[in-house]
């Protein structure tokens, strides 16, 4: 093995190698977006990653509203649209996936956050994008995730008084409630 005299360079290359594994499959332009995303959200300890070919960061649930606000307002990102807010039930925790989109230039980025199963609550992003309103109500209906600061979390897809959270893995398939 060749000895490297410059410890800083060795450290940097090692770091690059670690990052490469996590973000394998990203194109150069998406790697650039990921760098900007990490830079903009540096206060929230972002964990870089890749959703297939899209740049992705994972942050803590408490920071999500401030992080989304920064992603929208920062001119380097300019994520003017919330394309999708998805909730995924991983049995021990819920993963909330925010897919952000900017039109010009055409860029997509992903912010993920995990919330615990028992106390599933995180700040609402309706103040950032009004598109989040119905998405959050839907996630609240189907998964029982509580979005703090949402103006009205009344049932959207289900009816008033429906018991249980049909989106969750634990909810049986062939079960129905009489209306």
């Amino acid at each position: 093995m060749v000895e490297n005299n410059d410890p800083e360079a060795a450290e940097a290359s090692q770091e690059a190698a670690v990052v490469d594994v996590a973000v394998e499959g990203l194109s150069q332009s998406n790697l650039d977006i990921l760098e900007v995303l990490k830079e903009v959200l540096k206060d929230f300890n972002p964990q870089p990653g890749a959703l297939d070919d899209l740049p992705q960061v994972t942050i803590g649930p408490g920071d999500i509203q401030r992080a989304c606000r920064l992603a929208k307002d920062d001119p380097r990102l300019g994520m003017s649209q919330l394309s999708l807010l998805a909730c995924v039930d991983y049995l021990e925790y819920f993963q909330i996936v925010y897919i952000l989109h900017s039109l010009d230039p055409d860029r997509t980025a992903v912010i993920k956050t995990d919330v615990p199963y028992e106390t599933a609550a995180l700040p609402s992003v309706t103040s950032v994008w009004r598109a989040a309103d119905w998405y959050e109500r839907e996630a609240h209906d189907l998964f029982g995730v509580h979005f703090e600061g949402h103006p009205d979390l009344s049932p959207l897809l289900l009816y008033e008084g429906f018991e249980g959270y049909p989106g969750r893995k634990e909810y049986p398939f062939n079960d129905y409630q009489e209306f």
Partner: peptide, 17 residues
């Protein structure tokens, strides 16, 4: 793995996560 794909539908942008 996971993937997000979008396409232009008559009504707008459809995405599948």
């Amino acid at each position: 793995g996971e993937v997000y794909v979008r396409a232009e539908n008559p009504r707008g942008e459809i995405g599948v996560y």
